[in-house]
Simulated scan of single mutants.
Amino acid sequence: MAAFGRTFPFYAGPKPTFPMDTTLAVIIIIFLTALVTFIIILPGIRGKMRLFWLLRVVTSLFIGAVILAVNFSSEWSVGQVSTNTSYKAFSSAWISADIGLQVGLGGVNITITGTPVQQLNETINYNEEFTWRLGKNYAEEYAKALEKGLPDPVLYLAEKFTPRSPCGLHRQFRLAGHYASATLWVAFLCWLLANVMFSMPVLVYGGHMLLATGIFQLLALLFFSVGTSLTPPCPLRLGTAVLHTRHGPAFWITLITGLLCVLLGLAMVVAHRMQPHRVKAFFNQSVEEDYLLEWSPVEGGLSPRYRSMAESPEPQDIPLSEAVSSKPSCKEEHPREPDCAL
């Protein structure tokens, strides 16, 4: 520090910030692009099927976007507090700031914004991320933050999630995040299979996969809730206030989407059993693909065999003249039998 002419730890230059997480921005842009593409081709669909088709596409894209977005979101557990706290190490200067903590499935995000932003001849506006995803080392990221000389509130909160912290938050949130993330990836695969099956004449299996999508989302919530409540809460004291955390927007939107998938899956299964023709019409599939029951002898008994109406033989009209001419003549076949019955 002395080589740069500074006495206290300092943050080397302002850090460029993006209004939102770049990963979430990419996911939103991809799904919005897909939605706009479908809307462009919407006028080519006629009649009521246009509304049904739009409803299906919007619902499906919403579910897929939510599953991917919450997997990379840092707002599963959030907390914010306004307090007066120390700013730098080895300094008695205090600042007034809003401090926020966002815990996701792959790490924590810590923000500090001065009130006002300009204090102590500096711009107090920090947004730092510390991750524990696969391939990342949380301890190394925390060591680099110490070398940078980040503000005391940021280092204090980041230290609570280090592997050696007596709070045990690192193991608690890391395991819960890994299991919840893996379960959400399974839910995303089920969502893909559901879309594939809805485009084929196996709609009931698409309903089953949509039901599985919702169940796996609810399991992810269960893993996160149970995993983060195994240890007693660790008090986070920042100056004159205590920071408390609660479930964030990502948790609640996953709950809503999971319940929506479960309800839609159950409705799909029940509707396919009670009104299969209307379900096929809703998914723009031909009703002629329905199945007819045909009985055929097998091993001395009768067993059902299903075939589509397209395969059913069509009735053929036989001309009357051909029918009369095809009837065997009594004179030709039995010339010597005078008592032949007509």
Results as ranks from 00 to 15, higher is better:
M1I: 08
A2H: 15
A3W: 13
A3C: 10
R6M: 15
T7Q: 08
F10Y: 15
G13I: 08
T17I: 12
F18R: 12
F18H: 14
D21C: 04
D21I: 07
T23P: 00
L24I: 07
A25P: 07
A25L: 13
I28W: 06
F31R: 09
V36M: 09
T37Y: 15
L42S: 07
L42E: 11
G47V: 10
K48Y: 05
R50Y: 15
F52E: 03
T59W: 04
L61G: 08
I63S: 03
I63Q: 01
G64C: 11
G64L: 02
L68P: 02
V70C: 04
N71P: 09
F72T: 03
S74F: 01
W76C: 00
S77D: 12
G79E: 03
S82W: 04
T83D: 14
T85N: 06
S86F: 13
Y87V: 09
Y87W: 08
A93V: 14
I99Q: 01
L101H: 12
L101Y: 06
L105S: 02
N109Y: 02
P116D: 08
V117K: 07
N121P: 12
T123W: 05
I124W: 03
R133I: 00
A139K: 10
A143K: 08
A143M: 11
A145N: 05
A145K: 03
K148N: 12
G149I: 04
L150I: 07
P151D: 10
P153T: 04
Y156N: 02
R164M: 09
C167D: 09
A176K: 03
Y179V: 03
A180Y: 04
S181Y: 01
T183F: 03
L184F: 13
W185P: 09
V186C: 04
A187V: 06
F188W: 05
L189I: 13
C190F: 10
C190G: 09
N195L: 11
V202G: 10
L203A: 04
L203M: 15
M209P: 06
L211G: 07
L211P: 00
L211S: 04
I215N: 04
A220H: 06
L221Y: 00
L222Y: 11
F223A: 05
S225Q: 14
S225W: 05
G227W: 09
P232D: 13
P233L: 05
P235K: 02
P235Q: 03
R237I: 11
L238G: 02
G239A: 13
G239N: 06
G239K: 05
T240D: 15
A241D: 04
H244G: 06
H244Q: 09
T245I: 11
A250E: 01
L255T: 03
G258R: 00
G258E: 07
G258C: 07
L264Q: 05
A267N: 04
V270L: 14
M274N: 10
N284W: 13
S286A: 10
D290P: 03
D290G: 14
Y291F: 10
E294A: 09
S296A: 08
S308V: 08
M309G: 05
A310S: 11
A310W: 15
Q316G: 11
L320P: 02
L320H: 12
L320C: 13
A323D: 06
S326W: 07
E332N: 13
C340V: 15
